[in-house]
Amino acid sequence: MNKKRSALIPILLITFVVVACAPLLLWFRDSPLLLLKVFKSDVYNLEFSYQITVLLLAVIVIGIVYGLAGKGGLRYLNLKKRDGKIRPEPWIGIKPKETETWKHLGLNFAIIITLVTAVVIYFQVVHGETVRLELYPGVILILMFALMNAFSEEIIFRFSFVAVVGKYGLSPYVAQGLAAAIFGAVHYFGHPGGIAGVIMAAFIGWFLAKSMLETKGFFWALTIHFLQDVLIFSALFMK
């Protein structure tokens, strides 16, 4: 009982931090702390300012996690660990064969999630709009913003819970459930948005937290999130 009580305080603290971050991200979207003017386009400048602001917030979250989980919590930031045993989840069709590991599951779900995101983004953002492709600096900025956004959001909404849960030996479903609930709620106002956005983001939050817990690494979470954000920024910037 004492062990459970000692674990309750850190998980409540990190949940409070992440919940506090959620409305901050929505506020920073229109009013970033650092308003930088690097590009000719106001759209690019606002996005760059937002991403830098959120990156600073992510660094603060890493510091808080370090305070709660120590060096052991930081192991989940390892990009080299991309394999591990899959915990079966029959209710969504994850029934791994004996030879199947995260190298297979990560790749398969990266493709599936990216295709589903592409369809939803097309109908929510692109459909009926005139689009154009700006190779420079558009494509370069799309890749840069996608990487920055994926990293920051994975730190805030996934790594935070995974590191604390891993440190204190709580059920992995605590991290996955919290990651799904908060990430899903935030995306009601994002892209993709609405109910469809909430459902998609909640599943992605749940799945990417699972990937971190079972691989003890950051690779699949960052990669899959990056692919989604490339599609989203492409749709937004090509309008």
Rank of each mutant, 00 (worst) to 15 (best):
I11V: 09
I11P: 03
I11M: 09
I11N: 09
L12H: 02
L12Q: 03
L12C: 07
L12M: 05
L13G: 08
I14M: 00
I14P: 01
T15C: 09
T15P: 05
T15Y: 05
F16Y: 04
F16M: 13
F16H: 01
F16P: 00
V17T: 00
V17G: 02
V17C: 10
V17I: 10
V18W: 07
V19H: 02
V19L: 01
V19M: 03
V19E: 02
V19W: 08
A20M: 13
A20N: 10
A20F: 15
A20D: 11
C21E: 08
C21F: 13
C21H: 12
A22Y: 04
A22H: 01
A22R: 07
A22M: 04
A22E: 03
P23Q: 04
P23W: 10
P23I: 09
L24H: 14
L24A: 14
L24F: 15
L24I: 15
L25W: 11
L25I: 13
L25H: 09
L25F: 12
L25T: 15
L25P: 11
L26K: 06
L26F: 02
L26P: 01
L26V: 00
W27D: 11
W27R: 12
W27A: 12
W27M: 09
F28W: 13
F28P: 13
F28Y: 15
F28N: 14
R29H: 04
D30K: 10
D30Q: 11
P32F: 05
P32S: 07
L33C: 08
L33W: 11
L33M: 10
L33P: 01
L34M: 05
L34C: 00
L34D: 01
L34A: 06
L35A: 03
L35D: 04
L35C: 00
K37M: 00
V38G: 02
F39K: 03
K40R: 15
K40V: 12
K40L: 13
K40Q: 14
S41Y: 06
S41A: 07
S41E: 12
D42K: 11
D42E: 15
D42F: 05
V43H: 15
Y44N: 08
Y44D: 08
Y44P: 12
Y44T: 08
N45F: 06
L46I: 09
L46D: 09
L46W: 10
L46K: 11
E47F: 15
E47Y: 14
E47P: 04
E47M: 14
F48P: 10
F48Y: 09
F48W: 12
S49V: 00
S49H: 01
S49W: 06
S49Q: 07
S49Y: 02
Y50I: 03
Y50P: 07
